[in-house]
Amino acid sequence: MADDTLLAARGLSRRFGAVQALDNVDAELWPGEVLAIVGESGSGKTTLLDVLSGRLRPDRGVAWYRDPAGALHDVHAMPEPMLRALHRSDWGFVRQNPRDALRLGVTAGGNVGERLMAQGARHYGRIRDTAQDWLERVEIDASRMDDLPRTFSGGMLQRLQIARTLVTHPRLVFMDEPTGGLDVSVQARLLDLIRTLVANLHIAVVLVTHDLSVARLLAHRIMVMQRGCVVESGLTDQVLDDPHHPYTQLLVSSVLQA
């Protein structure tokens, strides 16, 4: 792997019973690069996300992560405290359902501030200022800062999750269908927001989605998965506009055009 690769995987395999969820998958990610993993459900894309982020161990293969100091770490050989610390600071995870990630009994400000406090922030006023700044960045009115998330709409909840994740300026964020389950108009706003934040903050993203238009809008590169294998990968527009693999051609031709 090259000197500035942020995340690299070689030969990742993982089996669940009779199902080969991952079959000898390689992947690489550069700083600031958005990589979309697409495929239909059961193709192994979420398994790949879980393995890359260290939440799941592969049966075979290895994934490395380069820390800000330039040192390489085997994601699955990392001591648990280090992996958890990484997930609280330099990494982020955005789930499809924000209710799985947010603390619904804690105010919006507290949700955004949690990662700061987990990193040792102990100045209430500064935590609050930062939380307010982030709420504004994700277009949540500052007057909602002390409200509980259970009073928020689905789109607001997802934006709150993004603020909560990005507040520590992670260099790598894993996203699992971040716009799934939202109304189309809400999706568009969220996509634009993610696109802008990720580009401005130079965040690398591994994005799992079944929605090719989401991949097209957000991702520099795309990996198409089918039955645990990567069947095609490359520049997003190249793969989507000139698909070579039969499965990719099927996926692309199955998309409804507005």
Binding site: V106, T107, E114, M117, A118, R122, R128
Partner: peptide, 19 residues
Amino acid sequence: HALAEYGLMQVKLYEDVTR
């Protein structure tokens, strides 16, 4: 406790001060 991850308790204090 094992990992000294006490941010959550600080969140509880944050909520108190906020409220």
